[in-house]
């Protein structure tokens, strides 16, 4: 299992990356951590003639927390997400989710940008970004633009990013209140059988804000609007939780694979969402 021949580039700036993408068009791909792309290349499922490594672009790295807004450069690794204490205070759900991605060796190389931009519904970060209501920052030949994470995913591997654009950063508001990212998987290194991210803010016994999103339970990450509507304004009692869980499961649309059949996945989705809501409530 070895890839075909390709040209390799390691530019220093975002402009150079955009320039190379413009030059080579469909024949070029950018590579971040490589965990998704390299297996595809080795299996020769994708014919890539020009590989543009983002590892040399310093502008894509780093975590900035400024006035309640968190901005994370696309090439920030999952290891860095876990070990950044300021980030853990500003949005502790990031650390909780990142620790559930594979193992340390994978996380030393895996990046937040690669994870969200690839459009693989099995990745954890897209679901997490739905939960956070994040904004994606894209750069292209006509300059920069932003897209809401909740508008980014169209279908598996199809996103709002144009072929000549790259994702440079994600940003979101610092969180307060309860949080949880729950995931069931078969083993270390596996994708989720079902996973869910939940944020929950309580005021005087009532839920003032909530967010619920699902990972690997449809061909895109799923933000569960109905579940959120049920939770907000409720006391997050058993009845509200049950209704929210049902609403979340109703919008899931998993496919059967070696992890199990659809009825099993939907059932487990319910268990996982419930666990996440209860965990978030206990921390709110």
């Amino acid at each position: 299992m070895v890839p075909g021949a390709f040209n390799y580039y390691r530019p220093d700036t975002v402009d150079d990356v955009i320039g190379l993408l413009g030059e080579w068009g469909d024949d070029a791909r950018v590579i971040a951590g490589g965990h998704s792309l390299i297996p595809v290349m080795k299996q020769r499922l994708s014919d890539i003639s020009h590989l543009i490594d983002l590892g040399g672009v310093e502008a894509l790295k780093g975590i900035i927390i400024d006035g309640g807004t968190v901005t994370i450069g696309a090439m920030t690794t999952q290891h860095e997400l876990i070990t950044n204490d300021a980030l853990a205070s500003a949005a502790p759900i990031i650390r909780e989710a990142s620790l559930q991605i594979a193992d340390p060796q994978v996380r030393y190389l895996g990046t937040i940008g690669g994870n969200v931009a690839n459009g693989d519904p099995a990745n954890d970060m897209p679901g997490l970004m739905q939960t956070l209501g994040a904004t994606y920052h894209l750069a292209g030949p006509n300059g920069g633009r932003t897209v809401a994470a909740r508008d980014f995913y169209e279908a598996a591997y199809f996103t709002a990013r144009e072929d000549d654009e790259i994702l440079t950063a994600v940003s979101f508001a610092a969180t307060s209140g309860g949080y949880a990212y729950e995931k069931q998987k078969r083993k270390i290194g596996d994708y989720a059988t079902a996973a869910a991210g939940v944020l929950l803010t309580m005021h005087g016994g009532s839920c003032s804000a909530a967010s619920v999103a699902l990972t690997n339970l449809s061909d895109t990450p799923v933000y569960c609007t109905d579940a959120v509507d049920i939770l907000v304004g409720s006391s997050v009692d058993d009845e509200a939780v049950a209704a929210a869980v049902k609403a979340a499961v109703d919008v899931s649309d998993p496919v059967a694979d070696t992890r199990g059949p659809v009825d099993f996945k939907k059932y487990v989705a319910g268990v996982i969402v419930k666990k996440a809501i209860e965990s978030a409530r206990s921390r709110a």
């Binding site: 193992d103 083993k187 270390i188 290194g189 994708y191 070696t258």
Partner: peptide
């Protein structure tokens, strides 16, 4: 359907 180590289960230390 289990032709790679993603689907063919080989336990790690964690399991």
């Amino acid at each position: 359907t289990t032709g790679t180590l993603m689907d063919f289960f080989v336990p790690t230390a964690v399991e």
